[in-house]
Computed example of a mutant assay.
Amino acid sequence: MGRKTILFIEDILNRKNGSVLMKIKLLILGILSVLMCLCFVGCQGRVDTKSELKHYLHSNGHWLCSIEEGPVETGHGDFYWNVYDKTNEIHFTVYQELTEDLYGSVEVFDNYNAKLVEKHIDDFPDHEGVEIYTKAEWDTDPILRFEFANVEDLEKKCKVVEKCAEYIDTLEKDMHIAVSAKYNSPRVEFFKDNSLDDIMGNLDYGYGLTYEEIENGELLKMIKDKYFSWGYQYRFQEIESEMTEEDIKNFWDDSFNSCIVVYHSGDEDAPNNKDFKVYDDIYGGGYITYGNMYYLLIEEGFDVEGTTDDFTVTNIDGQSCRFSYSFVDDSKYKTYYLVDGEVVQCSIKYFMLNTVEFKDLFGLSIKSAAEVSNTNK
């Protein structure tokens, strides 16, 4: 919106009197100022033309470059330029991507770092088990990818990643390195084979870190925390058996993880109901997973036979209930349990019962400790 338009509106408002109109005037002028600023910001940093591209290259330290191709449109307002850095003899790409905001802003980035690493790929130290990937389109950084089977394997792979990151740091100080780590095990393969990929949530870890951050152990810590969190929420024995007391403490120190409370009488929603027991080593609240249910039912005096992976217990109506992490079907959440041999589909996420289902089966009212704390404030 031009200055003449602003002056025209201001002239109209100046002909009026009264504090209300003055407030309206100030409000309109404020909005117009903000819109003009946003429009101005939205136009910055573009590479629509060769001159804008050269400015971008120079501002990023690439002074001696030739434009090989572009702009090449890819649809939806996005395009790229192929560029050759004569100084370091590197072919790379500059991308302009239209963002989804209201002002038509764009994001400009390049894959120079990935191509720099690609040029020196044969000079890396031994990196068995870790793939160095540099060919992803629309990615800016080199990617170090690996799979791990347990904590020992994870620690070894992180050491290899650290050596690779150290070498990358000699090419470009504090370069951001994308690290992709995937946990793999017979259980994970079973889930994938049965289209239960979603149960693994954020188990496929992706991080952007520098060598210094990797050297300081940040990568290993972040992956271990998520790995242990997933395993402990379901009480998968192969993961829980790897956890130290410190790892378990870290799990409970996370404010998103709450232990479970069982009410033994009265209304669990009543603020003055104190007849409850806190199980500070059992995870749950609005729902409970099979593995945590196994431990809770034992603590509450039920006769439970089996393991966290597959157990049988008699409910308050004398029915035999069986819960297993192998019970998979084609229902909405693809998991179920058995009551006197009959299939009952899980009504919430995978291998879980909600509080109503759990109470109907076992007569126990459960909440998260966080909910109880808020109720009793």
Rank of each mutant, 00 (worst) to 15 (best):
V47W: 01
V328R: 06
V179D: 03
E137G: 11
V344Y: 12
K157M: 13
Y84T: 12
S105F: 06
G286K: 00
M243W: 06
L64K: 14
S195E: 13
W138Y: 15
M352R: 14
F358D: 07
I298D: 14
D247P: 06
I248A: 00
F40Q: 02
V130I: 12
C37L: 15
F8I: 01
N17I: 08
F323W: 04
I177E: 05
D225Q: 14
T335E: 08
V117D: 00
S185A: 11
K221T: 13
T49N: 12
I316P: 00
L154D: 10
I143P: 00
T74C: 05
I348T: 12
D197G: 11
L64C: 10
E357V: 08
H176T: 07
Y232Q: 04
S59V: 02
I248M: 03
H91E: 15
L21D: 02
L32G: 00
I298K: 15
I9E: 02
V160M: 07
I6V: 14
Q233H: 14
A181C: 04
N82H: 12
E162A: 09
M293S: 15
I348C: 08
D303G: 09
G206D: 08
R235P: 02
V108C: 09
K359M: 10
E155L: 11
S365G: 06
L38H: 00
N216Y: 15
T49R: 11
L154G: 01
L98F: 09
I90S: 11
E10F: 10
L154F: 01
I132M: 10
N184D: 12
D139L: 15
D78R: 13
G30N: 12
G286V: 04
L364T: 02
E189C: 05
C259F: 10
K359E: 15
T134E: 09
Y56S: 03
D329R: 09
I239K: 02
F191S: 05
I90M: 11
Y84I: 11
F109C: 04
A370W: 08
F190I: 04
R46H: 12
Y103V: 12
F302Y: 15
G231R: 09
V261P: 02
P142A: 02
L209D: 01
D310C: 11
Q96T: 08
G306Y: 11
G18D: 02
I239P: 03
Y207Q: 04
